[in-house]
Design a protein around this nucleic acid. Structure first.
Lengths: 412, 412
DNA sequence: TAAACCTTTGTAGATTTTCACAAAAGGTTC
DNA sequence: GAACCTTTTGTGAAAATCTACAAAGGTTTA
């Protein structure tokens, strides 16, 4: 329809929807505008032609995760994030995506959002690419407005979240009201997640994090914040059958993506089981911090443990250590074995440690020690003799297991 | 040889041996004199006829334990302890004891010792019984002298022992010298034992204790003392292959005898493993006191535990309990299983408890639960499923074991 | 340096444990 | 009351663990 003159978008628009319609009119194809997290901001309605991906996006008010994933893999999003030029995407039928052209909306060096134009029955010309660039320029101001508004909202979220975490809000009902006043729907049950990074989290990384969170559709995030090297989330645990299992999967996914897309390594995830009472968030936060503390102390031993519940004996490691120190206690068995080891240049203590860690399974332990099963058997007999251990007594074994771990910690 | 006149023992004797010979001459049979603990004090040498029991007594300078035991069982010693009259003992070939007559030596209401006269080839007449009574009267003074000398020595022992227990002697060498100056040979390795009574230990009971200790030949006691309701021993651990096992046996024996012979019940034994360094006695004492403390707190759980080492998790039961209470923690698995038990009228929690207590041995646990091994297997699979337990993970098992015990204690 | 002792590894048979499957008993649901 | 689920027990074969014993290499001791 529309042909020519300089900039058809240099007029005031009341809303982004109006702009979307205008672009659609000018380019003669359906148009959608997204923010940087692929949430739908506006879409044209004059043109009724569309494709399944666009329908899902409009229905869900966000681009489906599998579409985003595909666009990452295939290079479109990385390209949009590094170039201000329009980029053409070929159709991908397996995810319901037809031919289209996209352009990113920039403010200085930051991407604020994207405009998508579907090439149904037509292909955009070079001139139309120039027009699209101009449309992106026009969208920028509207997006900036949105962003400042969002930032203000974010700030209020953050303040609320920190109050929650630090125990300034004591009553569940009061907290629920707070949620509502911020226009957040509190889930019936929630879980707290903390991702700990090697270094303090930069502004750039924070963007990546929130991007990943907002584009993932596995976990409903209610609140999130950053504290030095920790990224803290309050997520809904509704509809989770096995919270820990599902959160473990999510963490794996999250860590994998952070590495794959942004090259960020060494993220330690930690989370809680699900709770219902929001006044418990403070406790849940303490719990995660304690898990992190312990994981930092025993990285190898706890590398597959992410919850307080699964810490096992590491739950009470601090009090045990305290008790042992206060009592000047020395485990008789370990003392004897250590003396023997020193004198005969053997390694009975290590043998015992591995044996107990492998759940007293001779074969597994022998493999881990790189010795013959009979060798291990012989050593265990020796250990039982010298250290006066009864391997049939769980109480004794537990004490040994604990003391071994305590002493290992002591040495570090 | 000798016949008649009033009292053939009313002359001064230089030594007990002289008296023994004199009695032997008068009664025309071999004679031995023992103290209240059946230690040999003197024996006649003029008469060469004897029996195996007497030979062992003279060789070992004490009456063999099995002879003492037999004399208790068969009633001779109880009779001697309650009567001032001579008592005849029939031969007991199984312990090498020939016919003999015995009499106790008294000072007021206390037995100081015994005189034994062997009836080889002859039987003592009533007149000779009267003579024996007079002999016992004569022996009394000599024994009293011995006893006061012994008492003074005892006092010095006690002082030394308390210094040791309370940490007033810090250096091993210094302590060894103290031992030597008291004419005690310090063992290369020692163990400390404490027997706790229900009530404070009376003077009478103290006598019984020391009697039992001195007549038993299983344990070499270096020092002993009494403190309120506690009887404290320092014993040699030389030649002990498995100290704890041997001391457990000794304790059983000791407690059994105290009950059998004197009707004293409810004695709680506690002891240490063997140590070499005598400056460690103080710590060993603290250790035993702590075991007693814990045993008083958890009498059922710890009724078969006598050493700090074997307390296992009960070593830190108090801090664990505290920690759990402070954290409002609930074990997820146990919660789920308990709910299931209630709903389906099953007993998965008990099953798990027994299984873990029996060191995860299916057969033992099945026997204890009175079910088929396959039943137990089935239940365990159920438990693993419902409670999300991995029975190959020692950390999880330990936590369950501990939490089960903590909760059991809570309920009582 | 030889003898004695400790340690590792291998072999082989006995013993235990594990596992899959089937039958039956008891309970619940429709 | 049939259909279904859960639980218990039994059977037998496969897998594992345990045990005894022997050989060999290393270290310590007299």
């Amino acid at each position: 329809m529309y042909k020519g003159v300089n900039d058809p978008f240099k007029i005031e628009f009341d809303s982004l929807d109006e702009l979307a319609d205008r672009i659609s009119q000018v380019l003669e194809c359906p148009v959608t505008i997204e923010d940087a997290s692929h949430r739908l901001l506006a879409y044209s309605t004059h043109d009724e032609r569309t494709d399944p991906a666009r329908i899902s996006t409009i229905i869900g008010r966000r681009v489906p995760e599998k579409v985003i994933n595909q666009l990452w893999k295939e290079g479109t999003i990385p390209a949009l994030l590094s170039s201000k030029e329009p980029i053409r995407v070929k159709d991908m039928n397996e995810i319901g995506l037809g031919h289209r052209v996209a352009i990113s909306i920039w403010k200085q060096e930051e991407v604020l959002g994207f405009i998508w134009a579907l090439e149904i029955d037509k292909t955009l010309t070079k001139d139309e690419f120039v027009l699209l660039k101009k449309a992106a320029e026009s969208a920028k101001n509207k997006l900036l407005q949105l962003q400042t508004r969002k930032n203000k909202k974010e700030e209020r979220f953050q303040e609320f979240f920190w109050k929650l975490l630090t125990g300034h809000l004591k009553n569940n009902e009061e907290i629920i009201n707070h949620f509502h006043s911020l226009k957040i729907t509190p889930a019936a049950s929630y879980a707290l997640l903390v991702f700990q990074f090697k270094e303090n989290i930069s502004a750039k990384e924070e963007q990546h994090l929130t991007y990943l969170l907002k584009t993932n559709q596995r976990l409903k995030i209610m609140l999130y914040t950053v504290d030095c090297n920790q990224f803290i989330l309050l997520a809904s645990a509704d509809n989770m059958k096995n919270t820990i299992q599902e959160l473990t999967q999510f963490s794996e996914f999250f860590i994998h993506k952070m590495k794959e897309r942004y090259g960020v390594k060494d993220i330690t995830p930690v989370f809680t089981n699900h709770y219902e009472d929001y006044s418990y968030v403070t406790h849940a936060y303490d719990e995660t911090l304690e898990v992190l503390l312990i994981k930092n102390q025993f990285p190898n031993e706890t590398k597959n443990i992410f919850t307080y519940q699964n810490l096992g004996i590491y739950q009470f490691f601090d009090v045990l250590l305290q008790k042992r120190k206060a009592n000047h206690y020395e485990n008789y068995t370990l003392k004897v074995l250590r003396e023997y080891d020193q004198k005969h240049n053997s390694n009975l203590v290590e043998t015992l440690d591995v044996f107990l860690s492998k759940d007293t399974n001779i074969n597994d332990a022998a493999k881990a020690l790189n010795v013959h099963a009979n060798t291990l058997n012989y050593r265990l007999k020796r250990i039982a003799e010298l250290g006066e251990v009864d391997f049939k007594n769980p109480n004794q074994k537990i004490t040994l297991y604990i003391d071994l771990r305590l002493e290992k910690y002591h040495k570090i």
